[in-house]
């Protein structure tokens, strides 16, 4: 591993000043479960690390009000056990506890989890494989390579790496907002605007500048979260990344769908909201037939690669099942 220098600022202001002063080759570290892993692989080679675990103001968790607020340094395991999340937003709790292992969830921060980097094997395992995300301009070995786990939504000629996280899939379904703070002050952005599709610049995962820190995640209180699920299909029953996952939430009024949210994981370069599938359900009864139709619509427009076309049928079934599970919790 490349040698690096280490700083541990005591508060948010100092952390931003540290980042702004440090310049290129500096990375934030919280739980370290992604960054330290990639540093051991020499995929991440920062010269300086800024450890933000001392920032007590990022550790708050307030789920009692009209807006749920989760500090960026709250650990995944702690958020997963929050009673309000479990009762009123089961998709959020499930997305957390169905990710990683309890050891890693005890370590990993929510902010860091949102920024988890792709599991694309060509990205992780380095030379001799080309990877525009790891080494801009080198090409993409996945497009014609082993691409079973890659994205068929949101890719480009330069990159088809799938976004690997679960929590962001549930958050995008709930229209969550991310507060970030940097040298130019604080701003808020929709979770849908946090992650970047690769386009011609796959190396830039997120719409954040180098001096910005995710401060908190805000989830608007709503009544659609209660009948919800995060349905995650994996190659083994636990402790694996999604082959396909669906965050689904539904509110039924007078026997028909009044509000519905569908988001997909494992198949896109960014957290993917299936809005046309949602639209197809509004005002209709939710049953096996309409849920299956929504599942088919959710995967229209997919551009499958050599090894992942099976996920179109699988994914449609996962969406259907997620909707039925969610509706069963109403």
């Amino acid at each position: 591993m490349k040698r690096f220098d280490y700083a541990r600022p005591a508060d948010l202001g100092s952390a931003i000043a540290t980042l702004a002063a440090a310049g290129d080759g500096t990375r934030l570290v919280a739980g370290g479960t992604t960054l330290f892993d990639l540093m051991k692989l020499d995929v991440e080679t920062p010269g300086r690390l800024v450890d933000i675990n001392g920032l007590a103001e990022l550790r708050g968790i307030d789920t009692g009000g009209d807006e749920l607020r989760l500090g960026a340094l709250v650990r995944m395991a702690d958020a997963a056990e929050d009673t309000r999340l479990k009762a009123d937003f089961p998709l959020l709790s499930e997305a957390l506890w169905k990710a990683a292992s309890q050891q890693l969830r005890n370590m990993a921060s929510l902010g860091g989890n949102l920024l988890q980097r792709t599991r694309c094997a060509y990205f992780r395992h380095g030379e001799p494989f080309a990877c525009n995300k790891r080494n801009p301009g080198s090409g993409c070995a996945a497009i014609d390579g082993a691409n079973r786990s890659h994205a068929f939504f949101g890719g480009s000629d330069a990159c088809v790496a799938a976004y690997p996280g679960d929590f962001a899939i549930a958050l995008i379904a709930m229209d969550a907002v991310i507060d970030v703070e940097g040298a130019k002050g604080r701003r808020s952005l929709a979770i849908a605007d946090l992650h970047r599709q690769p386009g011609a610049r796959p190396h830039q995962d997120a719409n954040l500048s180098p001096d910005e820190i995710i401060v908190q995640i805000r989830i608007p209180a709503n009544s659609v979260g209660r009948a919800s699920t995060y349905h995650k299909v994996r190659d083994r029953e636990s402790y694996a990344f999604a082959v396909v996952s669906t965050a689904a939430a539904v509110r039924i009024e007078d026997g028909v769908v009044a509000d519905v949210r569908i988001a997909l994981g494992g198949v896109a370069t960014v957290p993917w909201r299936a809005r046309s599938a949602e639209q197809a359900l509004i005002g209709r009864r939710l049953d096996a037939e309409t849920a299956a139709e929504a599942g088919r619509i959710a995967f229209e427009g997919a551009a499958p690669l050599n090894h992942n076309s099976f996920k179109i049928e699988l994914g449609a079934n996962v969406v259907r099942d997620a909707l039925i599970i969610a509706a069963g919790r109403a």
Partner: peptide
């Protein structure tokens, strides 16, 4: 059928890399 028409590739908050540096 593409469910994400918003431009996620737009530059962040008008802040250029040069400004940051």
């Amino acid at each position: 059928t593409t469910d994400r028409q918003d431009d996620v590739n737009s530059d962040i908050s008008g802040l250029s890399r040069r400004d940051v540096l």
